[in-house]
């Protein structure tokens, strides 16, 4: 197998005295969609923020296509081709949709190919075409999410980090967003690392997945394996607990096996 595109090794990150990542190692191959599952506070967002350089890693390494980028400034990491679609959209509210997209291309200087890219992107996000001149802050949540994805796409990234793209959206919109993510992956070959709480939706589009708990990877495997695992079903997919398995009054311990 070829060398993985993104390799994260033993990453440790602190928020002040609080250790948020306790040695996380993941790999993403070229052309793959990989998801990272976990509950609130498991360290999913921290992982993405550390990869994109917003947070400094205390220990460990992030390498893109074999090149270590751990100590790079955030803008340098973007230039290496890691695009981050942050949690909660984070568009530029008082700028037009078009200006938002052009800022996404801030690290690129080839204006003509940016324009071509824009055409390709509008194919995937027809809702944005008619709203080019509208202020991004006045878009609906789903449209803002699409804008955030489009803004990352225009960098023509090697890998896209998506932080809970379905957060706060209706089930119908979540499905739509994930459909677009799948199409972008299949048509344009964009490699994606998706962080989600909504395990079923994420696993349906991913080829592999990792489960994060309290800053550690506690389980990893193919999407099918993850969907089959009893603990995943119980804690993420809401399958009914088998009362005999929990053994009466004791709380059953998660083993992730």
């Amino acid at each position: 197998m070829a060398e993985p595109l993104l390799v994260v090794q033993n990453l440790e990150t602190y928020y002040g005295p609080v250790m948020a990542l306790r040695g996380v190692s993941i790999e993403v191959n070229r052309g793959e969609i990989v998801c990272v599952l976990g509950a609130n506070g498991a360290g999913k967002t921290t992982l993405l923020r550390t990869i994109s350089g917003i947070l400094d890693a205390h220990k460990g390494q992030v390498a893109l296509a074999g090149k270590p980028v751990t100590t790079f400034a955030p803008e340098a990491i973007v230039r290496e081709g890691i695009a981050h679609v942050p949690q909660g959209r984070e568009v530029f509210p008082l700028m037009s949709v078009l200006d938002n997209l052009m800022l996404g291309a801030y690290t690129r200087r080839d204006r003509s190919s940016i324009m071509q890219e824009l055409d390709v992107i509008f194919n995937y996000f027809p809702a944005l075409v008619e709203r080019q001149k509208q202020l991004a802050g006045t878009l609906s949540g789903g449209q803002q999410q699409m804008l955030a994805i489009a803004r990352a796409l225009i960098m023509r990234p090697n890998i896209m980090l998506l932080d809970e793209p379905g957060l706060g959206l209706s089930p119908k919109l979540v499905a739509e967003i994930y459909q677009i993510i799948t199409r972008l992956n299949q048509d344009l070959g964009v490699t994606m690392l998706v962080v989600e709480q909504n395990a079923r939706t994420a696993l349906e589009v991913s080829s592999r997945g990792y489960v994060l708990e309290l800053g550690r990877v506690v389980f990893d495997g193919s999407a099918a394996q993850l969907l089959d695992t009893a603990d995943i079903q119980e804690f993420f997919l809401g399958a009914a607990q088998n009362p005999s398995a929990t053994g009466g009054r004791w709380k059953r311990k998660k083993t992730w096996r």
């Binding site: 955030p74 803008e75 990491i77 973007v78 230039r79 052009m102």
Partner: peptide, 25 residues
């Protein structure tokens, strides 16, 4: 200008400015 637009971006949403690769500092 590109830099002027980026400055506006920083003032509207600094975190997002980092994410699109604007050298905020």
């Amino acid at each position: 200008t590109r830099v002027g637009l980026a400055m506006q971006a920083c003032s509207q949403n600094q975190l997002a400015a980092y994410y699109v690769g604007i050298p905020v500092k």
